[in-house]
Design a protein around this nucleic acid. Structure first.
Lengths: 250, 250
DNA sequence: AAGTGGTCTAGACCACCAC
DNA sequence: TGGTGGTCTAGACCACTTG
């Protein structure tokens, strides 16, 4: 696509005064032969090719980022985005297993693990008394080596004493619950909403602060209906499709 | 909060090189006495108060918009955002009823209604033969007079012949299904993902093209398990919290 | 009619990343 | 170390909204 052309769009904007450049750059990217890692040409290169200013390029890239077509590692560069992971948070009890089932490679990095008394908010969400001993585990979760979301788990310590000793890189908590404590997990409640990802979460996900994201929280209990864990997840907005199937809980 | 100060932030940025202005402006807004309609002061006023350039103000406002704190009507101005609507798409069968149940005022504007044969995609999603007669209804849905999402419904015509005659402003489709056709609806499958809202949807929602949104699609059947409608919804990202409860389907 | 947000320019400096 | 993206400036013009 030749874009050595005038700075002003030479076709009428299809929608009133809206900018044409996101569409133009989207077309360029799809026609361009990108490197294997999907890295885009630099913003300054696009600036020159399209004969527009850098802010205009960046605004267009932000829109393509919001669409989910491209993403960036903060201060590192822009890349074409991989397909979204199909996530059934009310059903899937193991992220690790669900990722593998879709032919992709899950990863986990433990950022923090500690025991502490439940705050009033967490106690209320879990349905346990305030000050109840809780294990708090903060993990970065990856799909094909790309950070996908940040998970903050609050586990009722009484249900799985000594859990923290089992928590390590690339260990599936669901497996630990089952093998070491005989717990069969079931989801109870999930709530989520789109929001911006701010620091410190953005930093851990290698995102620019303010990037769109999806915040999800979830209560999990065992097959006797007793609460086990209350999790908060901060997802990249472009990493997932959330699926909910009513009735058929396979 | 006095901000007649140097252009450069006078406190260290709490996180490396990230901008301080979103936090600054967030504080200002919460301390300011805003008009009853929640309208923010103009971008140029913020520019002068903070002694920064307009692009810096706008970038900060975009982040607060992504957080869900403020929103705008395209080309009209910035406003504080109302609370999110709690939405249970796998459970609620009537948007109208759910909004009222939360003490708010639902609205519907019919943008288009027509009968047409099912495309292959829609037929596959609905589980009916290609070319099957379909009613397609395009509605803008409002909460307290604010556009919340755009709904594109594909209804199997054979299940409710003459439906279009009943479709009108502020009519609940769920009620029509029940009263006129004796259909008791149940959700079957829901899938959603964050994405950008582009034209023409953005225009109908009075959003700037590229604003973050949530795309949701959903299959609904009757109590005999027969497909009735396949809906696609384009939500403002800041209008909802999605809730999923497993087990208790009241 | 005045003021608003939307778009865009043509530069600048910085910290950090990749080669 | 050269090039990258992140931040920011100080303007401009336009179409539309608001009072």
């Amino acid at each position: 696509m030749a874009l050595d052309e005038p700075a002003l769009p030479d076709v009428a904007s299809p929608d009133g005064t809206a900018s044409v450049w996101p569409d133009r750059i989207r077309s360029m990217l799809l026609e361009l032969k990108l490197r294997d890692d999907g890295r885009l040409p630099s913003e300054r290169w696009l600036t020159e090719q399209c004969n527009i200013s850098r802010m205009t390029v960046r605004k267009a890239l932000w829109q393509l980022e919001a669409e989910g077509l491209i993403h960036r590692f903060d201060r590192s560069g822009w890349f074409l985005s991989p397909p979204r992971f199909r996530y059934a948070p009310a059903h899937d009890v193991s992220f690790t297993a669900a990722v593998k089932a879709q032919g992709r490679v899950p990863g986990s990095v433990v950022l923090q693990k500690e025991e502490l008394p439940a705050s009033s908010e967490i106690a209320a969400d879990l349905g346990v008394p305030e000050e109840e001993p809780i294990y708090r585990i903060r993990r970065l979760r990856l799909i094909d080596a790309r950070p996908a979301f940040l998970e903050l788990s609050h586990v009722v310590a009484a249900r799985c004493p000594g859990l923290l000793a089992h928590v390590d890189e690339d260990v599936s908590l669901a497996t630990v619950y089952q093998r070491h404590y005989g717990l069969v997990l079931k989801r109870r409640q999930v709530a989520m909403h789109p929001t911006a990802l701010l620091n410190p979460h953005a930093r851990d996900l290698r995102l620019a602060p303010g990037t769109p994201g999806l915040f999800l929280k979830r209560l999990t209990h065992d097959d006797a209906g007793q609460p086990v864990t209350f999790d908060q997840e901060y997802w990249r907005h472009d990493a997932l499709i959330v699926e909910v199937t009513v009735g058929a809980q396979a």
